[in-house]
Amino acid sequence: MKTAKPAESPPSTTARAAAGGTRAPSGLLLLSVLLPPRFTPERVKRDRRYRTLDKYRFIAGFLALPLAFYAVFVISPFLQAIYYSFTDWDGGATADFVGLDNYRKLWNDDRFWDSAKTSVSLLVAAPVITLSLGIFFAYMITAGGRHRRGQAVAGVVGSSFYKVVYFFPQVLSIAIVAVVWMRVFSTRSGLLNGSLGAVGLDGLEKPWLGGDYNLALFATLTVLCWSFVGFYVVLFSAAMGAIPRDLYEAALLDGAGRATTFFKVTLPLIWDTVRTGWIYMGIQALDAFAIVLVMVPDHALKVTPVFLYQRFREGQFGYATAIGVVLLVFSVVFSLIIMRVGNRDRIEY
C-alpha cells in the first residue's frame, strides 16, 4: 500500500530541496493562497513560492489582530496625549493648537504644585522605606537561620511560609487594599486607633484620615509600603538565594561578621535587582492613584494623578493631558537619576 504512493511519503531533506523547484501554475498558486490550506493541491504545496507566500500569510494573519488592538488602544492614545497637551481641547469636536499655554497654566497653578509636592514626597520616601524593609526581611529569611554543619549561611525555618504571607497584599486589588485601610484608619472604629487604645497608647490615637495633610501623607505612605514590602522580600530573597555559598564561606573564613558580610558581599551582589526595584517602586509611588482616590478624603491631600483625573472629569482634556506628559517626564527623569546614581560596575559571579 505504502509503496503504491511513493510521492506522498514524507520527503527527506534532499527530496524537499528538489521539490522546491517544481512550479505550479500561477493561477492555481494565487487561488491556493486565498483559500484555506486544506484545499491546496499537493503539487502547489511543493512550490517554493507557495511556501513563502504561505509563511507570510500566516505571519500577517497572526499579527493583524494583536497589532491592531495594540496600535488603536495603546500606541495611538499615547501619541494623541502628547499632541493634545498643546491644545485647548475640552472634549468637543475641535481642538485649537495653543502652544505651551497648558504648561504655562500648570506652572502657575498652585493646586498642581501642592499635588506635585505630595507626589515627590512619596517618590522619595516610599522606595527607601519599602526597599529597606524588603532587603532586611529578605536577609533575615535567607541568612538569619541557625547554622547547620558546614554551611556559612542558612535560611530560617519556615522561609516559604513567611514569603507566602508577606506576599498576600500584592495579590489584592489596590482599590480593595485602599478600602481595607480606610477602615483600619477610621477614627472611631478603626483597627489602628483601637489597637493603640488597647495597649494604653491613647495619646497616639489620631483622626488619620480626618483632613490633616501630614496624617494623610503618613497614611498613604503606610499603605504603599505595606502593599509592596512582601513583593520585595520575594524578589530580593530570590536574588540573595542566587549568590553562591562559597562567597559567604570565604567571607566567614576571612573573619567577616554578619554586618560586614551583608554590606560587602550580599548588597553589592544584588545591587542590580535593588536598582530595578527602586525604579519600579518609584513609579508605583508616583502613581498612588487608587489609594489616594479611594482612601484619602479629597480636602486632605492630592497626588498628581488624582489632580489629573479631576481635571479630566471637569472636561479640561487638553490641560489634563499636559499634566500626564509632566508625569511621564517626572518618571523618566527619576529613572535616569536612579540609573546614574546606582551605577556601579556590574559584578559577575
Binding site: Y70, F78, Q80, A81, I283, F289, F312, A320, G324, V325
Partner: peptide, 24 residues
C-alpha cells in the same frame, strides 16, 4: 521592530493615555 514596539509599551504609564483612550 514589532518586538520592540510591544516591549516599549510596558514602560508607558496608563494614566497618560487616560483622556485619549476615553474618547477613542
Amino acid at each position: 521592530f514589532i518586538f520592540l514596539l510591544f516591549a516599549g509599551g510596558m514602560m508607558f504609564p496608563v494614566i497618560l493615555a487616560l483622556v485619549p483612550l476615553f474618547t477613542i
